[in-house]
């Protein structure tokens, strides 16, 4: 893990410096040069810190990162990158977290159901359905849901779901009921998009492992002992089949992050993906880099956390 973090940090440091002619600076001057004051320019120069040897720059960079100092956003100047990230990260964690939990739950139940029915016509139909759903491009699904559930279909002249944002502008943020309801109402479509495109993957994996577990010798033994089906299902099959699913959750976190980013962009959901989109359209390089670093570190930590949980789920695995 330490090696991975180190490589991510170095990559983040080297990328802007490897590009010939520093496109960042060129674009920046083209875009903001006319209305920048000389002291601003000096600040940006010191921020990009292109003075001194590469090694010295690297040293300064590492110290700043350790202090969670990613500099100032160009576009939202004088707001700092870390404060923008701090505001938007909770929304992304909220969206991604709830989407992951719900997809895993649906996936495990759906998968166990079709796993037990393996070989029947119903199983074949449900598996085909899951394969089709898992092939849906999430950005397209997001646009379809937005078009039909938030624009085209109305009940008594009222749209079913909001088109964008995380909560309605008419409520005051805080621990009050209208705000919470508004947040959930706005969460619905982005959440639906992510759940519909991720749960089939878990379901298909669960089905495959259940079919494998059913073929194991200890299953024959359990049957021969005359254990009740209910007990076999819970203690023998599901417990074993859930292990590969938890590994796949860890592996897919990085992938779901990408999906969540595009979904946030489509629904203008104020998470970190939406901020990244804003940063990219405004050539706000410090913000782009700060977000990349935070997301990479979060995914690495999430993987590490899943490893720990795995040891808890599977007693055969011991932590070194």
């Amino acid at each position: 893990m330490v090696v991975t973090i180190f490589i991510a940090l170095t990559l983040n440091f080297l990328l802007p410096r490897l590009i010939p002619g520093n496109i960042a600076l060129t674009i920046l001057f083209d875009k903001y040069g006319s209305h920048l004051k000389p002291q601003d320019l000096k600040l940006i120069e010191s921020q990009l810190d292109l003075h001194g040897s590469l090694l010295q720059q690297y040293q300064i960079y590492l110290v700043q990162v350790a202090h969670l100092n990613f500099g100032y956003s160009f576009y939202n100047y004088p707001e700092s990158v870390s404060s923008i990230i701090a505001q938007s990260l909770p929304w992304t964690i909220f969206l991604l977290g709830s989407a992951t939990v719900i997809s895993v739950l649906i996936g495990v139940f759906y998968g166990s159901y079709i796993g037990w029915k393996s070989g029947t016509r119903q199983e074949s139909f449900l598996s085909t359905f899951a394969i089709t759903l898992s092939s849906l491009p999430y950005f397209w699904l997001a646009l379809l849901l937005q078009l039909f559930l938030a624009v085209v279909i109305t009940v008594d002249g009222v749209h079913l779901f909001p088109v964008a944002l995380a909560y309605s502008t008419s409520v005051t943020p805080g621990a009050n009921l209208p705000f919470i309801l508004s947040v959930l109402h706005h969460l619905a479509l982005p959440l639906m998009t992510l759940v519909i495109t991720t749960y089939p993957g878990y379901a298909l994996l669960m089905r495959n492992t259940i079919v494998n577990v059913l073929g194991e010798d200890y299953m024959l033994m359990a049957m021969a002992k005359g254990l009740r089906v209910e007990r076999i299902r819970k203690r023998y099959v599901t417990r074993n089949a859930i292990l590969p699913v938890s590994t796949s959750v860890a592996l897919s976190i990085g992938y779901i992050v990408g999906g969540a980013f595009i979904v946030e962009e489509i629904f203008s959901y104020p998470g970190i993906g939406y901020q990244l989109y804003q940063a990219v359209t405004n050539f706000d390089f410090p913000l782009i880099q700060g977000i990349f670093l935070i997301i990479t570190l979060s995914v690495i930590f999430a993987n590490f956390a899943v490893d720990l949980i795995y040891a808890f789920l599977d007693p055969r695995v011991t932590l070194k």
């Binding site: 983040n12 992938y255 992050v257």
Partner: peptide
């Protein structure tokens, strides 16, 4: 394989975005 593991763990889409932002 160590190198490949690192590439696999770094979330692809943000990396894609940051690279594309720096390339023409």
């Amino acid at each position: 394989m160590r190198f490949v593991d690192v590439l696999l763990i770094i979330p692809g889409f943000p990396l894609l975005v940051i690279l594309s932002a720096y390339f023409p």
